[in-house]
């Protein structure tokens, strides 16, 4: 494609694909259009690198800011402060057409496959849209590429799928069309926001396996966002655990699942039920309370009001830095001090 200048770095260049430095994405909350009530701190100081060809998972409960982070990386929200750096250029400094080119380099797979597809377009049209937007005029080329991605997501026969409207497809097929659309512009980064949470159990594994194999085959960077830790083990290399707009723990996937360090991560893992009849015999340990409002988050460590290891005078007064209690395993908790 002609407009590859500011896409997230293509394979072969050294350095991370995407660097995120102290990123804040806040939303102004107004009443009647002008009264400022404050800021929703959806993403509140997040720093990480995405390497080429790796698969990372952002894990957290709803309202932890993981979706806002994804949208910021997609260029849909403007960062309030901090930087998203791709190819040495900060996202905030890109011009309109550069931003459009950047967006072509980031594929997006959403949670609700039916909602993600315009109901009044058939699959052929849905797949043509991104190519039209990016100036692929030739009808033959568009058709050929659409068929190629449909094959890649294993939707066949293409002749049957292309004229169908979204409501005629099953949930799994819809999600495959969404993935196909995300692949059309040959992105180097694929962001999947809860790609399977609205699908049936038996389809979930299928879609996750598909994403995994596409990631491996295309050597994509896959950032996938989920609230379900039980699905990440086989589909991510690294995990970032988010709570109230911040990353509170990050590590290689097995290390994090076997040796969770942060009390919140521990609670999250303890709440997950692997199918077992013994589950019914005892109550689970669940931290009291609910995730804080992003409008007025608690000071210092955001988890301290619910934390079983709360240390007064420390956890509620000073932000915990990222400790490294295990090798390449960071956790923002004063317990590791």
């Amino acid at each position: 494609m002609s407009e590859s200048a500011f896409r997230p770095a293509s394979a072969g260049t050294s350095g991370p694909l995407l660097s995120v430095r102290d990123l804040h994405t806040w939303f102004e909350l107004r009443q009647w259009g002008f009264l400022r009530l404050g800021h929703v701190r959806a993403v509140d100081g997040v720093t990480f690198d995405l390497k080429r060809g790796e698969s990372v998972a952002f894990v957290g409960e709803s309202g932890c800011g993981k979706s806002s982070l994804a949208r910021t990386l997609l260029g849909l929200h403007r960062p309030t402060s901090g930087e998203v750096v791709s190819e040495g250029r900060s996202l905030g400094t890109l011009s309109g057409s550069e931003l459009k080119a950047y967006r072509a380099g980031v594929g997006y797979v959403q949670q609700d496959p039916y909602g993600a597809l315009p109901p009044f377009m058939n699959v052929r049209r849905i797949l043509a849209e991104p190519m039209i937007v990016h100036g692929i005029r030739s009808r033959e080329e568009r058709e050929a590429r659409a068929r190629q991605v449909l094959e890649e997501v294993r939707l066949s026969p293409a002749d049957e799928i292309l004229p169908k409207f979204p409501h005629m497809l099953s949930g799994g097929q819809q999600q495959r069309v969404v993935i196909a659309r995300a692949l059309l512009l040959e992105p180097s980064l694929l962001i999947a926001d809860e790609p399977v949470s609205m699908l049936d159990a038996s389809v979930r594994v299928e879609i996750l396996n598909l994403l995994h194999s596409i990631q491996a085959k295309r050597n994509l960077t896959l950032a996938f966002i989920t609230h379900d830790l039980s699905t990440v083990r086989h589909y991510a290399n690294r995990i970032f655990v988010m709570y109230a707009g911040r990353i509170i723990e990050q590590a290689e996937v097995n290390d994090l699942l076997e040796h969770p360090q942060h009390p919140y991560t521990q609670a999250l893992l303890a709440a997950i039920a692997d199918p077992d009849a013994d589950n019914a015999k005892h109550q689970r340990d669940v931290p009291a309370g609910e995730p804080p409002s992003l409008l007025n988050p608690p000071p210092a460590c955001r988890f301290h009001p619910r934390c079983p290891h709360f240390m007064a005078g420390l956890c509620d007064e000073e932000d915990p830095p990222d400790f490294e209690p295990r090798r390449r395993h960071w956790s923002a908790c004063w317990l590791h001090r």
Partner: peptide, 30 residues
């Protein structure tokens, strides 16, 4: 106990092995 430990119907067996588990190293099948 029997269902989760030793499912009988082929569908039940497949369903149980398609569930991603936190503490399981094998990849779930679909």
């Amino acid at each position: 106990g029997s269902f989760f430990g030793d499912p009988a119907h082929p569908y039940a067996k497949l369903l149980m092995s398609s569930v991603p588990r936190l503490h399981q190293r094998e990849k779930p099948i679909h």
